[in-house]
């Protein structure tokens, strides 16, 4: 069987398209590469969506944490503390255990004139449940980064905005927010990289795999446990993640260049990769 056939059979196996049964004997390098690569679809799905949704919540959290109103500040502080202070591993377990306790038929919310039923069963599936955990988690980490950046917006910028007669929403949108993004971007890039790394925990911590559809690490361990040889499966997945990381660095680098476009060459913030936001 050629590698092309394998690609057709298993290229989309992780999302349930293609051959139903996984290979069982006579594993080839091609099968490793194809199946682990197909699992990578899930890693990218989780990473990209959590980062997109998380970006918005993180902005809200940063503003709430910087707010003078304790009704906004306190919840934001606690949210960030709980999600940054505990291991993602434990968060996955806890959320899964909580989600399965919700009534299967859905939660009924009486609205007076009518009752709407909130479906809950999809929460226990990894595609939704794990995504929610990752989304909340990355929001907390990113929120803290944005909050730090918000506090370091230079005083001069604010005074300049005042001098131009800007205030309120206009001042925020045209002066504070762009600077905050520019300052936060290098750290946010790191967060994005480690967010993608964290997606490998999904199938390791509570959320079950259905019909053997899992992420790249799921298939890597599948091979390692069948061939008893860690020297092929793990390097393959490592190579995939190195490529993924490069892609993240590249795309975030583009945004960084854009955010810094108005500054002279020597004042631009460079993305320095630091492992500061691993979970």
């Amino acid at each position: 069987m050629s590698c092309w056939d394998t690609l057709l059979q298993y290229g989309l196996r992780a999302v349930g398209i293609g051959e139903n049964l996984l290979p069982k004997t006579d594993f080839t390098l091609c099968q490793h590469v194809v199946l682990i690569g197909s699992g990578l679809i899930w890693n990218i799905y989780f990473g990209v969506l959590a980062l997109i949704f998380g970006f918005f919540l993180a902005n809200a959290l940063a503003l709430a944490k910087a707010s003078a109103n304790p009704l906004l500040r306190k919840p934001a502080e606690w949210f960030i503390f709980v999600f940054r202070g505990s291991p993602l591993f434990i968060q996955f377990f806890l959320f899964y255990e909580t989600f399965v306790l919700l009534p299967r038929t859905g939660i009924e919310i009486p609205l007076g004139f009518t009752t709407i039923t909130l479906a809950t069963s999809w929460l226990t599936k990894a595609w939704a449940g794990a995504l929610i955990v990752l989304f909340l988690n990355t929001s907390a980490y990113t929120g803290e980064i944005f909050y730090g950046a918000l506090r370091s917006v230079p005083k001069g910028d604010l005074e300049a905005a005042d001098a131009y007669g800007m205030h309120g929403w206009r001042k925020f949108r045209r002066v504070i927010w762009p600077t905050m993004m520019r300052l936060a971007w290098p750290a946010y890039t790191n967060e994005a990289i480690f967010m993608f790394h964290a997606t490998t925990l999904v199938y390791f911590s509570g959320f079950p795999a259905f019909s053997q559809m899992g992420d790249s690490l799921y298939y890597a361990t599948y091979f390692a446990s069948k061939t008893f040889n860690p020297f092929i499966a793990y390097p393959v997945i490592a190579a995939y993640f190195i490529c993924l990381t490069m892609l993240v660095i590249f795309s975030y680098g583009l945004v960084n260049t854009y955010l810094n476009r108005h500054l002279p060459q020597n004042m631009r913030t460079k993305i320095r990769l630091r492992p500061q936001v691993i979970r």
């Binding site: 139903n20 049964l21 996984l22 399965v100 306790l101 299967r104 069963s121 226990t124 079950p208 795999a209 259905f210 019909s211 053997q212």
Partner: peptide
């Protein structure tokens, strides 16, 4: 289960498989 064409849900421990039926998973 996989060979019979049923939908397989995999769990790491036997205990979790039973829990999955109890909670309707």
């Amino acid at each position: 289960i996989a060979e019979q064409g049923m939908t397989l849900a995999e769990y790491a421990t036997p205990d979790e498989t039973v829990a999955a039926v109890r909670n309707g998973e």
